[in-house]
């Protein structure tokens, strides 16, 4: 397939080391950051675990928005589907083994991804946005109405996951949940690195740059996008399930429009079209939110708004993309 010839903005700009070395470096960086987080903020492990769950959501959004160019404001539907599926499995059906809960979350997320992908990909531009907004509201109202299973607006509580592998019980300080989350994040990250470098991942980037050309080459644009949506749903579902396992509660806010919009903000802040950008954006945004909204909740929204405007005007590639560009310029000027 000649789709591999299409150049990608981030990855192929310079002659690189072997790809698996870069991945190893990425995993190492995540690992070091995780250990540092564990020892630097032992009182904030719950927040860190929540950041990891949201990271999975933003990574999943990156797959469809950054790599495929689909603008969506309804991606939390996939995250919330995973969270509710894991929670309902534990509360109603008594499946409390954490890894099974995550697997159920991933499957539910994939199904939600299939449904919302089929709906959202029907439109383009404005229609696409409106469809995505309608999807997230539909999911929200449906979860609210099905209160027998979901607890409605009270939220779904009473999720009591078993110890991981039967050995490590979830403790009050959230240590197990944190390590569990880091493990999931590294696993997903490695799988996604392989995915985005695969011919399929490259094809998706080609679709973002020129869908007509890709279809002229004989690849099915819509089928590829829906496939990516399903994968993205599985990733978001893992994030949702992790959130359900670690907080032991699922609220309606996980299916909210705000959650979707914030995920998009985090992605763009970090830099769409790069997995590292998704991770960086989530950390910066969530940490910022934690600090600022504790100091003054009124101004949080104003600051997010100003931040967004600033990113669009001055750093359209996001923090990570801008840093990469600056670094390249620096290295280039030294040679």
């Amino acid at each position: 397939m000649s789709a591999t010839e299409i150049s990608a903005p981030f990855e192929q700009a310079k002659p690189m080391r072997r790809p698996w070395q870069r991945d190893l470096a990425g995993v190492l960086i995540i690992g070091v950051a995780a250990v540092a987080g564990y020892f630097l903020f032992p009182d904030n492990l719950a927040l860190l675990t929540r950041i990891i769950a949201i990271m999975l959501l933003v990574l999943s959004l990156d797959l469809v928005t950054g790599y495929c160019g689909v603008a969506t404001l309804g991606h939390a539907a996939l995250f919330g589907a995973g969270a509710y599926a894991a929670g309902i499995a534990a509360v109603t059906f008594g499946i409390t083994e954490p890894l099974s809960m995550v697997a159920i979350g991933a499957i539910a997320g994939a199904v939600a991804g299939l449904v919302s992908g089929v709906v959202i990909l029907r439109g383009h531009g404005l229609a696409q946005l409106v469809l995505s907004i309608a999807v997230i509201h539909l999911f929200h109202e449906a979860a609210n109405k099905a209160s027998t299973y979901t607890g409605g607006s009270d939220g779904l509580s009473g999720i009591a996951p078993d110890p991981v592998f039967g050995l490590f019980a979830f403790d009050l300080w959230g240590r197990t949940a944190y390590v569990f989350g880091i493990g999931l994040l590294i696993l997903v990250f490695v799988l996604l690195r392989i995915l985005v470098r695969s011919p399929f991942g490259t094809l998706c980037r080609g679709i973002r740059q020129d869908p007509i050309r890709v279809s002229a080459m004989g690849a099915s644009v819509k089928a590829s996008l829906i496939k990516m949506y399903v994968i993205s749903g599985a990733v978001a579902g893992v994030g949702g399930a992790l959130n359900a396992v670690s907080t032991q509660v699922v609220g309606l806010d996980s299916l909210s429009f705000t959650n979707s919009a914030e995920a998009l903000v985090m992605l763009v802040l970090g830099g769409a079209g790069s997995l590292y950008g998704a991770l960086v954006g989530t950390i910066v945004f969530m940490w910022f939110e934690h600090v600022v909204s504790a100091a003054n909740p009124f101004h949080w929204l104003t600051i997010v708004g100003a931040l967004l405007i600033a990113v669009v005007l001055f750093a359209p590639k996001g923090l990570y993309g801008t840093a990469v560009t600056l670094m390249k310029r620096f290295i280039g000027s030294r040679q």
Binding site: T65, A71, L73, G125, L126, L129, A261, L264, V265, V268, A272, F298, H299, W300, L301, T302, I303, V304, G305, A306, L307, L308, I309, V311, V312, L313, P316
Partner: peptide, 22 residues
Amino acid sequence: PELTQVLMTIGITFCVIGLANY
């Protein structure tokens, strides 16, 4: 592109909400 427009105008909306609230 639409994504840029969406982000910019959502940013303006957030700012207006925050300021109105204040």
